[in-house]
Structures are given as C-alpha cells and as structure tokens.
Design a protein around this nucleic acid. Structure first.
Lengths: 228, 228
DNA sequence: CGGCCAGTTGAGTGTGGTCAATCGTTGTGG
DNA sequence: CCACAACGATTGACCACACTCAACTGGCCG
C-alpha cells in the first residue's frame, strides 16, 4: 500500500480553477449583495479581515504588490467562489474586480455565529481552506515550470476545465482578463504572453478570433506542452 | 481605515520558514517516536493521509515529482514543525528526510479523538493550516520573482530568520540541504545556485568557509537584492 | 475622423539553462 | 598511510529563451 497508490482523483495535479466545495443549504441567505464596477478594489492587503465575499457574477482577482512595485496575481475567482476566508486577522492580499461584479458580503462575525449552530458550514469552510491551499500549491508548481509555453498551455487548460465544469463549451474560452493580468499571474511579461499565444495559433493549437476569445483546437498538443 | 493600514506584523511578506504556531500542553505525549535515516522517504504523494508527523530532530523536505520527471521541493521542515496535516484524504506531496531524522508519528484517528476533548488543539491545527497556506503563498511569490539573485538572497535571509528564532547565530547558516535541494526549491539549476553564491561571496555579501556553511556579512545588501 | 488603449510584432540584449571539465572532500581498500 | 573512487560543488564556454525597448496594428468610443 505505502507509496504505491495512484494519486487520488480529488487532488488536482495541474493548475486548476475548479477548487470549489459543494454549496451548503441555507448559506445563500447570509450577508448583503453588493455591486462593484470593473477595476475597483474590494479589499486591500493588510486590511482587517472583517468580511468574507462570495462571488455571484463576474471575475475577481487576488493580487499582491511586491516590494519592488511589481504586481503579482495570486488567484482568479469565478462565480461560486469564496474570497477572504482568512483566519489570521488580516487579508493576505488585495482583491479587485476584473469585470463588473456582484458579490455577497458576509461579516465574519455573522458567519461565526452561524457556524456554531451549523457544523456542516464550519466543515465547508475548513474544506475551503484546504482547497485553497491545494490550488496555491498547484499555482506554485506552475510558476516553477521552466518554459512560458508550458505555463500558458496549463493556464488555458485550467480555464477550459472550469468551463466544462460550469456546463459551458470547454473549447471556447472567453478571457475575462487582460494580457497583463495573465502575465502577472504566470510570472511572465505581456509580450511573452502575446507572442506565445500567437505561436500556438501558428502551430494550429488554438484559434484567436478576437483577443478575448481563445478556441482550443488541439487539447492533446496543449496538454503535452503543459507538462513538459 | 480601508486600504490604508500597514501590513500586520504577523503576516510575513517574504519567504519564511518560521511559520509555527505555539505548541500545546499535553501534545507531546501523543504518538510514537521514529528514527529515519537520511534520504529515506517518510510518506508518498497520494498516500492515504493516516498520520501526522512532528519533526523532533533533523530536516525534512516535502516534494513533488512533476509529469516531466522534474522534482520540485514544496517546503522544508525543521524541528518543531508538523508535516502531513492534511484533511483532504491523501498527502499532496511526498516527504523525505534530508538528514537523519527523529519524528513523532501521530495517527489522525488518535489526533481527532484528542481534538474533540481539547478544543485548543483543534484551534492549533486550524492555525497550522492557515500558516502553511501563508508560507506557500510567500514561496509562490518568491518563485515569481524575476532574478536568481533575489530568490537566493530571500532564501538565505529566511534561513537566517529561522536561526534567530531558534536562538542560534543568525549570521552562521549551516545548510542542511544540497545545492540540488535548493535549486529544486527555488526553481533554478544547481549551477545557477552555485554561481550565485560564488558571486555573493565575490561581492562581499557572504562568506563560504565550507560548501555547507554560509556566513552572512551584509544583511542590508542581501535584503536589497531579495526584494528587487 | 481622430485619439486612445490593448494587443501584436520586431530587433537586440542578458540572464539563466545546458554540457562539460575540474576541484575538493569523504570514505574505502590495498 | 596513501591511492583511488565517488560524490557534491564549482567554474567555464556556449546558447536559447524570455525580457526590454520600440514601433505598429486594430478595435472602440467620443
């Protein structure tokens, strides 16, 4: 048994945006709904973590500004995801709406009162933290990957997987983020992202009808690049 | 208030090996002590996570083998650290002793029984998970950093901080890991690690009496390199 | 129509990877 | 005690990939 088991199905091996525990009944009643325009910050790195946010519509990113002024995007959040589940007092990153966004803001105080009554909610949040850790670890491995090609291939496949999970076309990827966002997420420059996508198109791996739409033509080829 | 607060003291901004919550009274009685020779694996990526391990002596690393055969070191663990605190069923990485190691093996079943009786133990493990997430995030940012110099400077300063915390000389760093281990941790090659350390020595930032001993001579200079 | 911005493409450079030779330490056996 | 092997670390030469700087394109909106 020891050491010879295949990796479990539920542990993702590649970059993945699908880390979302199943929702809990009764949860949606909590908190108040807020609308946030594109490119507006929701909270800041270092702020007291008073609220948790559930994304209802639109895309949110978590980012950090490094000492040298560079921005690094830690994570993207899609509808259904929960942001700011932080039990260390302060947020470890800033959060910004990439598109117009609808979120449900839930004060931690309210949440904690509820969790005392509903252990399955507490369970969900524990699981949420574990999944966020797993996602961060995968992102880390992606950053450690050598080539820009493998980073971007992995990124596209992760977006595709998320599409499939939401019941959308896994080969039609509508990019809600700019090239700069992708670059800051993958530790590349905007030019390299652009060049690599163009290269993928020349090689017949993808099509790029518009800058914001990627059509996957050769998943096998992309997968091969992704883990290289 | 919003967005204008300084980052909290307890959230590390740089690479750090000091993420360890305070120990809990009564904890040491649990589990059985095991001796593990250097370079022997303790558990494997994908194994059912039946045990949690507390490092008593020696250094342990957590690593993953990527699809292309590359090894990536996820984390180093020092005496007092806890490994394998995983509530997703299987270990998300393998663990290997880098030096001869003494660990305390604690079955999760035992742990969970204890936690039911002692809520402060459960609290400690929640905090442990949160700190591991923070450490992983910092490691990720370090990997996203552009230059080899800044990665290695940050790495040395992290080891130094850990030394200081253990009451040892923060400027005398005994490296328990090989150049390859460091390279796999920072996403570099063994040659680049070696070259960069040599460069630091030429520039008077460090001394290298032996391959396994680094003496920090210019912390300011290293810190400047670390966040660049 | 013109301005603006995101994205693309090009040319040149430099950092870090690759391959290979050498050094230094440690440990083993004659 | 020395010779030698084995291994990790260092150094050098070369090269490729991604960054930098810069020009240009295309879409969108006033």
């Amino acid at each position: 048994m020891l050491g010879l088991m295949a990796p479990a199905e539920n542990v993702a091996r590649d970059l993945d945006f699908s880390y979302r525990p199943a929702p809990v009944e009764g949860w949606p009643q909590l908190g108040t709904v807020q609308h946030i325009p594109a490119r507006e910050d929701i909270f800041f790195d270092g702020d007291e973590a008073r609220n948790v946010f559930e994304v209802l519509d639109g895309i949110v990113c978590a980012y950090r500004i490094l000492p040298d002024g560079e921005r690094h995007i830690v994570s993207f959040y899609f509808p259904g995801d929960v942001i700011g589940n932080c039990n260390l007092g302060t947020y470890p990153y800033s959060a910004q709406a990439l598109t117009p966004v609808r979120v449900r803001r839930i004060p931690r105080s309210v949440l904690e009162r509820y969790m005392a009554q509903r252990p399955e909610l507490a369970q969900r949040f524990l699981r949420l933290a574990a999944l966020e850790l797993a996602a961060t670890r995968d992102h880390m491995l992606c950053l450690a990957a050598k080539s820009a090609e493998s980073k971007i291939a992995a990124f596209l496949l992760a977006l595709s997987r998320r599409n499939a999970e939401l019941g959308e076309d896994p080969n039609q990827i509508k990019l809600p983020m700019t090239r700069l966002d992708i670059a800051d997420y993958l530790g590349l420059t905007i030019e390299t992202v652009s060049r690599t996508l163009s290269k993928f198109r020349r090689n017949g791996l993808i099509d790029l009808p518009r800058a914001t739409l990627v059509v996957l033509l050769d998943r096998k080829g992309l997968a091969a690049l992704a883990d290289s």
